[in-house]
Design a protein around this nucleic acid. Sequence first.
DNA 1: CCTCCGATGTGCT
DNA 2: GCACATCGGAGGC
Length: 202
Amino acid sequence: MESLVLAMVSKPSVSANARDLLGSHLVGHGVTIRVTEVEAYGGSDDPASHAFRRTPRSAIMFGPTGRLYVYRIHGHHCANVVTGPTDQGAAVLIRAGEVIEGIDVARERRSSRRTDGREIPTSALARGPGNLCRAAGITMADLDTDLANPTSVHLSVGDAPTAVSVGPRVGVRHAADVPWRFWVTDDPTVSAYRRHAHAAAD
DNA sequence: CCTCCGATGTGCT
DNA sequence: GCACATCGGAGGC
């Protein structure tokens, strides 16, 4: 099992690793999520990546592959899989998925932050990176988790999607046209594309 | 120390 | 389409 998971993130190209993560299962904190949308982020050659410059925060991206990189933005958490090659500082952002186990737990976690009492559709429980982390209970406490270790948050092999779509990454100011977002074609759990208000080609 | 701002999400116009 | 809540990282001084 471990070798299969590591194989997901061991290709020389981070975009290939991103594609391969589609259909895999993110398991942890009582919830299982089938990954339906991801984005690839490179290192010093990718202005949109946290690893564009090496800082204390991005150091983990230059570490061992198969680790969980969690960061906060606008008060939300986002989860990434550190991929190879190690010296490139590449990672894959898990943007959305289908909650296939622990739906009640996920809904409770999501609902606890909402002001209105309306029920969240199952297809939207893990739509968007912040919502996905919320649904899965992923926080900074999970930073650097070994995703091959089944005793905590981990990845397991699922069914490869029948069709994959490709497009630019969501909300990035830099390298806004690089087509490094991958999603399961026509899957209802995939988030909507939004271009940054001041997007630059870089 | 301080200022700026984002790989977001939500609600409102 | 637009505003804004919200907070730690990053960089300037």
